[in-house]
C-alpha cells in the first residue's frame, strides 16, 4: 500500500497499512532520538536516549519485516530507505526537530503514553498471532519509556525556574501536533473492521487523564486543546522537517546500495 490515498480492501492490505504506519512513527522517532547520542545532558541520559532510540528502531524493523513478508518484498530496507517523504505515514509530531531536552522529553512522554494505551487495546483485539506477539514484546519496552519520560516531566516541571520554563514551553510548542494521535481515517476504519487496529477514541480519556495528571503534578499548565491542530501527515502532508531527516537517514543506503558491514 504505497500508493497515496488508496484505501485498503482486504485484511492483508489493511494490516500492511497499519504495520507501515506504526513502523514509520517509530523509525522517525528513533532517528530523532538517536541524534542525542553524544549530546545528552548527562551520561546516564545519553545512554537512556540511545537505548530508547534503539528500541524504537527495533520495533520499526520487526513491523517492517512483517509488512515485507506479507507484501512479498525482499526485506524491511525497502520501506526504511527507498521511500520518499510523501510516502511516509508517520504523524508530524515525531518528525519535528529534536529541540532541547525538555522538548524531547515532552514528545517521548506524549507518544509513549499513547503507544501504551494503543498497544494494550490492540493486543486484546487482534487475532493475528505474529502481530500480537510483536506488540506484546514492544509493550514491555514502552512501559520503560513511559516511566522514564514521565519522571523527567515531573523532575523538570517541578525543578528549577529554568527547567520549569523550558518544560512548559515544550508542551506549548508540541500541543498542536497532539491532535493527530487520535485522528481516524478510512484506512483505519477498514483495519478496525478486520481487527488489526482499534478505535483510538475509546482510550482518549485514559490518555488525557494520565497526561493531564502528570503535567499538573509537575506544577505545569496543560495547554489549550481547543487550539488549531495539525493533521494530514499520515496521508503524506508532512512538515518541511521530514525530508531533511530522511536525507540524512537514507543517504548512505541510496548512494551505496551494495555497501555491507565488514
Amino acid at each position: 500500500m504505497s500508493t497515496l490515498d488508496t484505501i485498503p480492501k482486504t485484511k492483508k492490505e489493511a494490516l500492511v497499512e497499519i504495520l507501515l504506519r506504526l513502523a514509520d512513527d517509530r523509525i522517525v522517532h528513533g532517528h530523532r532520538l538517536s541524534e542525542w547520542a553524544g549530546h545528552g545532558p548527562e551520561l546516564e541520559e545519553d545512554l537512556a536516549l540511545a537505548n530508547v532510540a534503539l528500541d524504537m528502531i527495533g520495533h520499526a524493523s520487526s513491523l517492517y519485516s512483517y509488512a515485507a513478508e506479507l507484501e512479498g518484498k525482499e526485506d524491511e530496507d525497502h520501506y526504511a530507505y527507498f521511500r520518499d517523504d510523501i510516502e511516509f505515514k508517520n504523524i508530524a509530531m515525531l518528525e519535528l526537530p529534536r529541540g532541547d531536552f525538555a522538548f524531547t522529553i515532552a514528545r517521548q512522554f506524549l507518544f509513549s503514553a499513547f503507544s501504551y494505551f494503543l498497544y494494550e487495546k490492540l493486543i486484546e483485539t487482534t487475532d493475528d498471532e505474529q502481530f500480537k506477539g510483536m506488540l506484546s514484546k514492544h509493550l514491555k519496552e514502552i512501559k520503560y519509556h513511559l516511566r522514564h519520560s514521565r519522571e523527567w516531566v515531573l523532575r523538570l516541571g517541578d525543578g528549577t525556574e529554568e527547567s520549569h520554563k523550558r518544560m512548559q514551553e515544550a508542551f506549548n510548542e508540541i500541543w498542536m501536533y497532539t491532535g493527530e494521535l487520535f485522528d481516524l481515517d478510512d484506512a483505519d476504519q477498514v483495519a478496525i473492521e478486520h481487527k488489526v487496529y482499534v478505535d483510538v477514541s475509546t482510550f482518549h480519556d485514559q490518555w488525557k487523564n494520565l497526561v493531564h495528571e502528570t503535567i499538573e503534578e509537575g506544577t505545569l499548565t496543560v495547554p489549550d486543546s481547543e487550539q488549531y491542530m495539525f493533521s494530514g501527515a499520515r496521508k503524506g502532508r508532512h512538515t518541511e522537517h521530514l525530508g531533511r531527516l530522511l536525507a540524512e537517514m537514507q543517504f548512505l543506503r541510496r548512494s551505496y546500495p551494495d555497501a555491507t558491514w565488514k
Binding site: E44, A48, N51
Partner: peptide, 13 residues
C-alpha cells in the same frame, strides 16, 4: 536506582 537504562538494552544502573 541511578538510571533505568544502562550499557546495553537489558540492563539498568
Amino acid at each position: 536506582l541511578q538510571s533505568e537504562f544502562g550499557s546495553t538494552a537489558c540492563k539498568s544502573q
